[in-house]
Computed example of a mutant assay.
Amino acid sequence: MQTASPPRKPRLAAIEYIRGISMMGVIGIHIGSQYIMNPAANIHLVALFETFTRFSVPIFFFISAFGLFYNLNLNEPFNFWKFTKRRLKTVLIPYLAWSLFYLYHDGLLYGVDFPDPLHLLSILFFGNAKYQLYFMVILLWFYLLMPLWIAMVRRLTIPRLGWLLALQIAFDYWSSFSTSFNIYVYGLPDDSILKPFLLYRLNYWVLHYFFIFLLGGYLSVHSARFMEFMKSHLHGLTCFFFFTLGGLMTYYYEKIYFDGYTALEAINTAHQLCPWGILYTIAASLFFFAVFTYQSYPQSWNSLLHILGKHSYFAYLAHPLFITYIGLWLQNTGHLMTAPVVIAFYFATLLLSILAAIACRQLGTYVPIINKLTIGVYPKK
């Protein structure tokens, strides 16, 4: 006689809402990259676009792990083939489709030939077809290493998480700020086989984000205690969020006002892999999860948060297209990248990305291959 499988846990709207917030942050980072080209860019607005949003990529690893472990029974054998097959359909196929699309599109737009097979393999391995696609490469590596994460989450305790956090800070600091290591990497000959593997290490080394992923898995497995903790410590989590945000912002301004950095140099230092950035990511993950779980904001916002979250995947993948064409329009019409223009640029990109996502999602109900290729969604059987 077969035993009935345990009931699925209740759906968590917080995961969907954080996806939307993460997508908005990523668009902000990429719009900020356009704005910072202005020599007279307002450093405070740069901080808003480029520093405040630095939780956006790593927080997605947190919620991805939380979702993966949420209904996973650690006491049962893990079906790696079934898991991998499903994840490859939802991530690998859209990744390849969007990569080929951008290679063809940018080739036509900028008059660049399509890469030869060997170069194409390199582009796809490192996620270099477009600047946002590297994230999907790291996510695929996280999926392929799922048996390792399961084994680690089974053995995790709060003290062990503390040790892992210390290791994460040390590793990211070495990777980002070690002068000798970076001199070695950039000193390698351009035809060196090793150079791209080290130069693009952020594109596929999961070690840069292993702690936030494991934290998401651990809290998911202990979700009941996590929910109680958030409910009783909402004020403390809010303070932790603003404290770490203040620390990261202070680090950014310190580099500008005391060390003479340019705004570009400052944001390339005060990022998500610096110690303050890692703490800020953790704080943002806990803060937004608590806020969205216990709804400490007007309920009317939920409809908008649902739309942003539901269509965040497509918007994340498609937004560089709108950045490109809005940017070209601004350039051709002689608009300077001033603060009001760049703010309008951001909201126009966000709006068009979401509208395109809604339109393609609707079209995909009639032409299923559209949803399969763009967001890995398949018709329900």
Rank of each mutant, 00 (worst) to 15 (best):
G28K: 05
F345S: 03
K195Q: 12
T281R: 04
Q362L: 04
S176W: 08
I36T: 03
F61K: 01
F211Q: 04
T293W: 00
H233E: 07
Y204D: 04
I15G: 01
I307W: 00
T281C: 15
I29Q: 10
Y252I: 11
W81M: 12
G187P: 02
A315I: 10
A283T: 04
N38A: 09
Q2D: 12
I212D: 03
G127H: 03
L48T: 15
L68M: 11
Y186M: 15
R19M: 05
I21H: 01
F52V: 08
F60D: 05
Y110V: 07
P368T: 11
I150S: 07
Y218V: 06
I36G: 02
L373F: 03
Y218I: 11
L207W: 09
H311D: 07
I193K: 11
I21V: 13
G327L: 09
P379D: 05
S180I: 13
Y204H: 11
I358A: 02
L328D: 04
L124K: 09
T53G: 00
K380G: 12
Y110W: 14
F83R: 09
I193H: 12
I354F: 07
L12T: 06
A40S: 15
V185E: 05
A339T: 08
F177W: 06
L264K: 15
I138S: 11
L363A: 11
S122T: 09
L161S: 07
F289K: 02
G309Y: 00
L88N: 03
Y173S: 14
N71V: 11
T349R: 03
L215R: 01
S180P: 08
S178R: 13
A41I: 12
V137I: 12
G25D: 02
L133Q: 04
L88E: 05
D190H: 14
E50W: 07
T244Y: 00
G334F: 02
L352Y: 08
P94T: 08
I63M: 07
R225S: 10
R86V: 11
L68F: 14
F125R: 11
W301M: 13
P147Y: 06
R8F: 01
S220F: 05
F135I: 03
L167P: 07
M230H: 02
R54G: 06
I43Q: 15
Y102C: 06
L352V: 10
D116W: 13
Y252Q: 02
I183A: 09
L355Q: 13
Y346M: 09
F345Q: 05
A283R: 07
W141L: 15
L317R: 05
L317F: 09
T238E: 13
T338L: 08
S176I: 00
P159L: 04
M37T: 13
G67D: 06
V206G: 03
R19W: 14
D191C: 10
Y70L: 02
T51Q: 00
S296I: 08
Y134I: 01
L103Y: 14
Q168T: 14
F142N: 07
L161R: 08
V185F: 00
A266R: 10
K372R: 14
P115A: 12
I123S: 06
